[in-house]
Simulated assay, not measured.
Amino acid sequence: MQIYRLLTEDDTSAFCHKVSEALAKGWVLHGSPTMSFDAARGVMRCGQAVVKDIDAPYSPDMKLGAQ
């Protein structure tokens, strides 16, 4: 089964580290990254979808980042 996550963060190196950590844990990029301006905070935000195949049934209670 395949699980999905959307990683988000301000446009800083923290976003790149978050995505790199997911890739190191076996997650795979899904689609293109996205950027949007958060007018309330005055910062750019980034997003990247990632997917991963797992051998467990899906449960809404599972911690996706721990997979």
Rank of each mutant, 00 (worst) to 15 (best):
T12D: 09
S13E: 12
S13P: 09
A39G: 04
A22H: 07
G26E: 02
A24D: 03
M35A: 15
V28A: 05
V28T: 10
T34S: 14
S20E: 06
R41I: 13
M35F: 04
C16T: 07
C16A: 12
T12R: 04
C16F: 11
A40H: 12
H30D: 08
A40I: 14
S13K: 05
W27G: 09
V28Y: 06
D38V: 01
V28G: 00
K18Y: 01
L29T: 10
S36K: 14
K25V: 02
Y4V: 10
R41Q: 14
P33F: 09
S32H: 14
S32A: 14
A22L: 08
D10N: 13
A14G: 13
D10R: 15
H17P: 02
P33A: 06
G31N: 00
L29Y: 09
A39R: 12
H17W: 09
A14V: 15
R5P: 00
H17E: 05
A22G: 11
D38I: 01
H30M: 01
A39P: 00
W27P: 04
R41C: 11
D10G: 11
G31V: 10
K18P: 07
F37A: 01
A24R: 13
L7V: 15
L23D: 13
L23P: 07
R41W: 04
G31I: 10
D10W: 14
A24V: 04
V19P: 01
G26T: 07
Y4R: 10
A14F: 14
A40K: 13
L7S: 04
L23M: 11
E21M: 15
T34Y: 04
F15W: 02
V19T: 13
G31K: 06
Y4G: 01
P33K: 11
Y4T: 13
H17G: 03
P33H: 08
V19K: 05
H30K: 05
Y4N: 12
S13W: 08
T12L: 02
E21K: 12
F15E: 03
S13A: 11
S13D: 14
C16L: 10
T8E: 04
H17I: 01
T8F: 04
R41G: 05
H30R: 02
G31A: 05
D11T: 13
A22Y: 05
L29S: 08
L6Q: 03
M35C: 13
A22E: 07
M35D: 03
E9P: 07
Y4S: 07
S13T: 11
E21A: 14
E9C: 15
T34R: 06
E9Q: 10
L23N: 08
Y4C: 07
S20G: 14
G26Y: 12
T8Y: 06
G31Y: 05
E9H: 13
T12S: 07
